[in-house]
Design a protein around this nucleic acid. Structure first.
Length: 406
DNA sequence: AGTCCACCGGAAAACATGGCAA
DNA sequence: TTGCCATGTTTTCCGGTGGACT
């Protein structure tokens, strides 16, 4: 038997550690969400008004990442839809993830499409779309619910117009009623939202607390039973994953960790998933996030980051002016025009919100006020990722030479 | 006490791009 | 084709600002 035959034979006979990986995917919402009974009941209690024929209050849901806001909402809506269908109560809802539909216009189009209106992605003025939506509502629905998930993205990006319009829509609708659910994990969201919108959006508020370590363990146990074959995963491994994710009480992260750990075990040909695998998964997840973030950056910002990386090797205090100089030089190397300082500031701000750099404003008195930029990721990691591109590698070498001379 | 450096950051406007409707 | 409609990127303009220096 040849080596290859042997290998293939082994691969075939090796049972996957996963029974059904789907249960560890982000979009899977189980029928019962442990430790969120209180929130489910509260939400259901508000929305059940629909079955009684009255308009439910608008709801504002707040809680950190991975605390079950989205899952709870989707679960309750799914059940509610079943019940209303049974009871022949006309009801429909639209779920808008504002991270994808982050402008007022796009959110509006998404809602319209969920109402089975055929709307082109562009070309129609917003008020026309809105009146089409209203017309459709009056024809078909008594109750309509719009969920704005991660609503802070929408508001930060393009203002609260659509929220304002929708909160006021009820007074213009004769036959149908509309309610809103806003979901966010941004603590400071209340600050930049218009007071009128905020007050009408938060007629009811549901707050989601982070999961405790024990709760995470419980959740993982539930999922692990569904996703892995029996006896494949160590109890220790599950506990470890729960402990890691408990730092921010993030259930999504915990589940992710378990999945990646399983994948690693499988890759290595191990038949069991152990603590080791979870530890590796934890590193891998972290590394992949950074890599993903840097690689999806627009080329301009990658080049800027390259400049900062180069600077950080020669000087410890990187100041805006130096960055501007360096970046202009880099641009000229690839035959592009320099860019305004104002624009560079925007780039830097973006890099900062992504957690790649950090900055502090310092004043040098007579010598002006500026900002010191610090890399939050080891230079080697950035070089490792960016220098795969031969063009970048070449420019980077020259940059090093130029920076070496004062 | 006032000056003034070297930048910060909001607002508006310019420019590029792309789809639709008539 | 023209004229809207939108989005995204960059420039222009401009009013700040903390503190070393005079």
């Amino acid at each position: 038997m040849s080596l290859l035959d042997k290998f293939l034979e082994q691969a075939l006979s090796r049972r996957s550690v996963f029974k059904d990986k789907r249960y560890l995917s982000v979009d899977y919402v189980p029928d019962d969400l442990p430790y969120r009974e209180k929130e489910i009941l509260k939400l259901a209690d508000i929305l059940v008004n629909i079955l009684k024929g009255t308009r439910p209050s608008n709801i504002f849901e707040y809680g950190p990442v991975g605390t079950g806001k989205t899952a709870v909402t989707q679960l309750v809506l799914r059940k509610l839809k079943e019940k209303t269908d049974e009871a022949k109560v006309p009801f429909g809802y639209s779920y808008v993830n504002c991270r994808f539909y982050r402008t007022n216009y796009r959110a509006l189009v998404k809602i319209a499409t969920d109402l089975e209106l055929k709307i082109s992605k562009t070309g129609l003025p917003p008020d026309v779309i809105l009146s089409l939506i209203m017309k459709r509502l009056e024809e078909n629905y008594m109750f309509f619910l719009v969920v704005f998930d991660e609503v802070d993205w929408l508001v930060k990006y393009s203002g609260d117009d659509i929220l304002y319009q929708f909160t006021r829509l009820n007074s213009e609708l004769a036959k149908s009623k509309i309610s809103l659910i806003g979901i966010t994990n941004d603590v400071r969201f209340r600050e930049y939202l218009d007071a009128r919108v905020l007050s009408s959006l938060s007629e009811e508020t549901i707050i989601f607390q982070p999961y405790t370590q024990d709760q995470l363990y419980g959740i993982l146990l539930q999922r692990a039973k569904l996703a892995f074959w029996e006896g494949v995963i160590d109890d220790e491994a599950i506990r470890y994953a729960a402990a890691v994710a408990a730092r921010d009480g993030d259930a999504r992260k915990a589940i992710d960790l378990l999945r990646v750990a399983g994948e690693i075990a499988e890759r290595k040909g191990d038949s069991k998933v152990a603590v080791d695998h979870v530890m590796q998964a934890s590193e891998e997840v972290e590394r992949n996030i950074i890599k993903e973030v840097i690689l999806t950056l627009p080329p301009n910002q990658q080049l800027l980051l390259l400049g900062i990386a180069g600077l950080s090797k020669t000087s410890s205090k990187i100041v805006t002016g130096r960055i501007k100089q360096t970046y202009d030089w880099l641009l000229s190397q690839i035959g592009r025009q320099p860019i305004t300082l104002r624009r560079i500031n925007d780039y830097l701000a973006e890099l900062e919100t992504l957690g790649i750099i950090s900055s502090t404003i310092v004043s040098f008195g007579r010598h002006g006020r500026t900002r010191i930029i610090k890399l939050e990721i080891p230079v080697e990691v950035i070089e490792d990722i960016l220098l795969k591109d031969p063009l970048f590698a070449e420019i980077y070498q020259e940059l090093a030479c130029v920076l070496a001379q004062p």
